[in-house]
Every structure is written in C-alpha cells, then in structure tokens.
C-alpha cells in the first residue's frame, strides 16, 4: 500500500441527501416489483422484447410459406433478380401456369414466336 501517497486525504464523501434518495428509489422499485408479482406478471422488458422478436420471425416465416415467392415483386439482386427484370409479362404468365418461380428461369432463353 502507498499510505504516504494520499496521507491526510480521504475519498470525497457522498452527498447528505443521497441516502434518502437511494432508499426511496429502492423502495419504489420494490413496490413496482411486488405489484407486478401480485398481478401475475413475471416477465421483464427483456423477456417481452425477446418474445416479440420470436413472434415477428414466426409471422414472417408463415407469410412467406403461404404466399410463396411473388413474381410481381421480384428479387432486387442476384441471378433471380436479373432474370425477373429480363422477363416480360408473357414469360411470367407462362411460369405461373407451369407452376414454377420465374426466378428459376434465370439464364434460360425462352423461345419466342417468330424467333429461333
């Protein structure tokens, strides 16, 4: 220890009113917790945020599964996106009738009438 370094000095003391302030805040927090427990609420804000994120993920998953990939709103990048941009309405209609995703036609040249 370096007793000579801080001789005659002590750490600054806490303000006089801090005790009341801290204890009052602690009692308020304890009261809030007790109220939640009485109401049967046992989760925290973190739990709520976690549950909301999971629900959102699940909802997105279900929506995508049900709707499939839209050929109207195409991908914005990648091979699929390029394919969709190049396809005209007839190609998209054909793909829908056949039951395939238009993005799968990437790189495929669909023969048009009057064109080899």
């Amino acid at each position: 220890m370096n007793d000579e370094l801080f001789s005659g000095m002590k750490p600054a003391a806490a303000p006089a009113g801090l005790r009341d302030r801290a204890l009052r805040a602690a009692r308020t927090a304890a009261g809030r917790r007790a109220g939640k427990e009485r109401a049967g609420v046992r989760f925290t804000r973190f739990d709520l945020a976690w549950a909301a994120a999971l629900l959102l993920l699940l909802a997105c998953h279900i929506l995508i599964s049900i709707g499939g990939r839209s050929d109207q709103i195409g991908a914005t990048n990648g091979q699929g996106g390029v394919a969709e941009m190049r396809r005209d309405a007839a190609d998209r209609e054909l793909a829908r009738e056949v039951g395939i995703n238009v993005a799968l036609l990437a790189g495929v040249r669909v023969p048009a009438e009057g064109r080899p």
């Binding site: 750490p11 806490a14 303000p15 302030r21 801290a22 204890l23 805040a25 602690a26 009692r27 917790r33």
Partner: peptide, 25 residues
Amino acid sequence: LWRTGSREDAADVVQEVFVRLASAP
C-alpha cells in the same frame, strides 16, 4: 466518483445499485 469523475453521476450510480438490489432480491 473515481470511475466517472462526476459527483452527480456517482450519486446516480449509487441510486441505481440500490434500485437493482430491490428489483431482484
């Protein structure tokens, strides 16, 4: 106080510690 350098912040820290203590005893 030694960590933050501010008496105001240090008082907030003490209060926060006791709130946390009372929130999860």
